[in-house]
Structures are given as structure tokens and as C-alpha cells.
Amino acid sequence: MNPSKVDRNKLERLEQLPNIGKACAADLRQLGIETPQGLIGRNACDLYEELCIVTGVRHDPCMLDTFMSIVSFMEGGPALPWWSFTEQRKRMLKAAAA
């Protein structure tokens, strides 16, 4: 869904989250997350790693950006497009590798 049209107080389904369509919602459900509220308190990096393990596939890093965007949003951050988190992800991963 378009980030500018999302009201976190009215979300009931994962597909109502900014940046989440049917495929990403299905990925979240594989991780045991059934509602947007299930993202609160979760770590986006952990979600990404768990998804890679569960599916047996190393997913594109933009999936981590997407997870960062929705966790941030559900924890009170603004509704932003997933690519707004790309630079933050790159800095985070670079710091972790150092």
C-alpha cells in the first residue's frame, strides 16, 4: 500500500502496511506474524535472517529494507517507502562487518 495512505491505528491485515503486498505478507506469515501489531518489538535483521532460513533462500537485501520500514512504522515512525531505509541498512551492515 502507498505509505502516504496508511493509518497505523486502523490496520488489521498485513497487506494494509506500507510497502507490503500479497507476497511479503505471505513471507511474514511464514515467520508467525499474522497482524501488523505482531511487528512491534521485533528486530528487522532477525526477521530477515529467519526468512532466509525458513525459505532456504538468501533474499535480496531490499527485503531487509522492507522489514526495517514496517517495524519502524509500527513502532511509531513515519510511513516511508522501503528504499528510504537502504542507506541505513548499508551503514548498519558495514558497521557489523567491521
Rank of each mutant, 00 (worst) to 15 (best):
86 T>A: 08
28 L>S: 06
32 G>M: 10
88 Q>T: 09
64 L>E: 06
37 Q>A: 07
4 S>L: 05
87 E>C: 07
67 F>A: 05
92 M>H: 10
59 H>C: 08
75 E>M: 09
25 A>L: 06
72 S>V: 03
74 M>R: 07
73 F>Y: 09
74 M>W: 05
3 P>Q: 03
35 T>K: 01
5 K>H: 00
83 W>D: 07
41 G>Q: 10
73 F>W: 03
88 Q>P: 06
47 L>P: 04
52 C>E: 14
94 K>Q: 08
14 L>C: 02
47 L>V: 09
98 A>C: 08
23 A>S: 10
42 R>N: 05
89 R>D: 09
57 V>L: 11
96 A>P: 06
91 R>S: 13
94 K>S: 14
19 N>P: 04
25 A>W: 04
93 L>H: 10
83 W>S: 03
3 P>F: 00
54 V>D: 08
54 V>Q: 13
16 Q>W: 07
97 A>H: 09
28 L>M: 08
55 T>F: 03
66 T>W: 01
59 H>R: 10
71 V>E: 08
84 S>T: 15
34 E>G: 06
43 N>Y: 01
70 I>E: 02
29 R>E: 04
18 P>S: 02
33 I>G: 03
60 D>I: 11
29 R>M: 07
76 G>W: 03
32 G>Y: 00
95 A>I: 11
27 D>M: 14
90 K>Q: 05
35 T>C: 03
2 N>R: 13
66 T>D: 05
52 C>L: 15
95 A>H: 06
56 G>T: 14
93 L>Q: 13
85 F>W: 13
12 E>P: 11
78 P>R: 15
21 G>Y: 07
18 P>N: 01
92 M>G: 09
7 D>I: 02
81 P>N: 03
37 Q>F: 12
17 L>P: 02
34 E>P: 04
20 I>A: 00
72 S>T: 08
74 M>Q: 12
38 G>D: 07
67 F>Q: 04
76 G>R: 15
73 F>S: 06
89 R>S: 07
21 G>H: 03
4 S>P: 05
53 I>L: 13
30 Q>W: 05
33 I>P: 04
75 E>I: 06
39 L>W: 09
65 D>Y: 01
93 L>G: 15
83 W>T: 01
52 C>K: 15
18 P>W: 00
75 E>R: 08
32 G>S: 13
30 Q>P: 04
91 R>A: 10
1 M>H: 06
70 I>A: 04
29 R>Q: 09
25 A>K: 05
95 A>R: 08
98 A>G: 13
20 I>S: 00
78 P>H: 15
56 G>S: 12
68 M>Q: 07
91 R>H: 11
37 Q>M: 11
36 P>K: 00
23 A>W: 06
7 D>T: 03
25 A>I: 03
9 N>Y: 15
76 G>L: 09
47 L>G: 10
70 I>G: 01
74 M>A: 14
54 V>F: 03
43 N>A: 03
9 N>K: 13
39 L>G: 01
24 C>V: 14
23 A>D: 13
65 D>S: 02
21 G>T: 05
25 A>Q: 06
23 A>Y: 08
40 I>K: 08
98 A>T: 11
28 L>D: 01
80 L>C: 01
35 T>S: 02
59 H>F: 15
89 R>P: 04
54 V>P: 05
2 N>G: 09
69 S>P: 04
16 Q>Y: 15
17 L>C: 04
9 N>I: 12
14 L>P: 00
92 M>I: 11
3 P>I: 00
67 F>N: 02
24 C>S: 14
85 F>A: 01
94 K>A: 11
70 I>C: 05
